[in-house]
Structure formats: structure tokens, C-alpha cells
């Protein structure tokens, strides 16, 4: 099976400073991949390159997807458009008519439990609600690849848990390739079936699947040992 996302010796420089240097990895169709790593390692840069928002300085990239959904760290909703309009706009940009886009937006907002707030402006919504609108916007475009860039870092645990459940449910109905960047091991472990640890801008270490299973079963020892080992390398 050919990979949906493929990086081959990718380099990205900002003003002469290498953020990513010679990075290679592959992600296959419908894989949910978690990407862990400290701040400043270039995780967001990887997502932006996949989304086409940044161009690499060197190396080969292949992203076999017509539509890429992206849930940013902050919701990035247009403050002058209602929740419904924010979800509708990307669909209209894709060529869908307003009526269809409205119906679909209503459906996805309903799935995010926001049916009563469709005509609210972002300033009238809480942080969690805004992030759910952002998620509805990403899902509504039916992306082949979904990029999640620490989308829940500013939310409380309860809200995080609720939104993660919504994502899990949606992925069952609408399988897609997901790359999920987070600081939180628990979050990543919960929804990912492959996990990468980024220890530097050039290397991704993959967590052995047995550690992943053990972590989910409540045994975190092996995982912590692995992260320490990567850190010392």
C-alpha cells in the first residue's frame, strides 16, 4: 500500500536556522498517528508543510489527498461570521451550494453538540465550543487527511475528554488519515494506532506497538522507559 503522506530527507529553514533537517517518515491511509515531542522541535512545521501552508527548503514530499483538514491550536474562526457560517465557508469554497453547505454544517455542528449555538458569533462561545466549531469545520469538508495541532491544549480535562470522544466517534463513521500533534501522552495514546516521538528536527522514533498496548492497559512503565531512552539518545 502506497503511503498517503511521505517525507524524504525534508529540510526546513527559517532565516538560516534549520528547524527540520533530513526528516523522513511515511504515513499510510487511515492511520491515526500521534506525534509527541517538546516545543520547538518543528512539529507544527511538519503539519504546515503537509497542509501546503509552508514549502520545504529541501527534500521530497508527497501528500496524496485532495482535501486536508486542519484543527489549529487556536480555533481560527472568522469573528464576523456565525458558527454556522464558519463551518459553511470552506464547503462553499469547495464549490458546494449554500443550501447543501448549510445542511451539512448544521449536521456537523449537531454532532459536536452545538445545535443551539449555530447562529452565535465566536465571541459569544466558550473556548471549548469554538474548538468544536473548528473541528466541525474540518470534518465537514470530508478531508482525506486531518491534521490536529495541539487543539485542546487550552481546554480543561473534561472538555478535552468530551471532544476526544467526539473525534473517536467521527473516525469510526468517517475513517481518514490523522496526524495528531500533542504534548499529552494520554491524549495521543487514546486515539492513535501509531506513535512517533520527535527528539530532534531530523529524527522520528516510533513507539513499539506493544508499549502502546501496555500504556492503554494502564501500564505506563515501558512507555516512560522508552521516552527516557530516546531522550538520552
Amino acid at each position: 500500500m502506497s503511503p498517503v503522506i511521505s517525507f524524504e530527507n525534508v529540510v526546513k529553514e527559517y532565516g538560516g536556522r534549520k528547524v527540520i533537517s533530513g526528516l523522513s517518515f511515511q504515513i499510510h491511509s487511515r492511520e491515526v498517528v500521534g506525534l509527541l515531542g517538546q516545543s520547538g522541535m518543528g512539529k507544527t512545521t511538519i503539519l504546515k508543510i503537509i497542509a501546503g501552508l509552508e514549502m520545504p527548503s529541501d527534500g521530497d514530499i508527497k501528500v496524496i489527498a485532495e482535501r486536508v483538514g486542519y484543527v489549529f491550536q487556536e480555533p481560527r474562526l472568522l469573528p464576523w461570521r456565525t458558527a454556522l457560517e464558519n463551518v459553511m465557508l470552506p464547503m462553499i469554497a469547495l464549490g458546494m451550494n449554500k443550501k447543501q453547505a448549510g445542511e451539512k454544517a448544521n449536521h456537523f455542528l449537531g454532532e459536536m453538540e452545538l445545535s443551539e449555538f449555530t447562529h452565535y458569533y465566536p465571541s459569544q462561545l466558550s473556548g471549548g465550543m469554538m474548538q468544536r466549531v473548528s473541528l466541525a469545520r474540518a470534518f465537514a469538508t470530508e478531508p482525506e487527511v486531518l491534521l490536529l495541532d495541539e487543539p485542546f491544549s487550552a481546554l480543561d480535562l473534561q472538555m478535552k475528554d468530551a471532544i476526544l470522544s467526539m473525534i473517536e466517534e467521527r473516525l469510526l463513521v468517517q475513517p481518514m488519515t490523522v496526524l495528531y500533534v500533542s504534548h499529552s501522552q494520554e491524549e495521543v495514546m487514546r486515539i492513535s494506532n501509531r506513535i512517533f516521538m520527535m527528539s530532534s528536527g531530523s529524527k522520528l522514533d516510533e513507539l513499539p506497538i506493544q508499549h502502546c498496548r501496555a500504556f492503554r492497559a494502564g501500564c505506563k512503565k515501558a512507555f516512560l522507559k522508552w521516552t527516557k531512552q530516546i531522550g538520552s539518545n
Binding site: 486542519y70 481560527r76 472568522l78 465557508l89 470552506p90 469554497a93
Partner: peptide, 25 residues
């Protein structure tokens, strides 16, 4: 800039960017 980036990601056309992103801002 973050909103402009979002518009690029979701492939807003030129008219849509002017109408929905720049003009209201």
C-alpha cells in the same frame, strides 16, 4: 495572519477572501 492562513488552507477564492476575510476585518 492566522485567519489568512486558514483561508489559504480551505482554498478560499480571491473574491471570498476579500468578502469574508479582509473586508469585514
Amino acid at each position: 495572519e492566522k485567519l489568512v492562513e486558514m483561508a489559504r488552507l480551505y482554498k478560499f477564492g480571491f473574491v471570498m477572501r476579500i468578502k469574508d476575510v479582509y473586508t469585514p476585518a
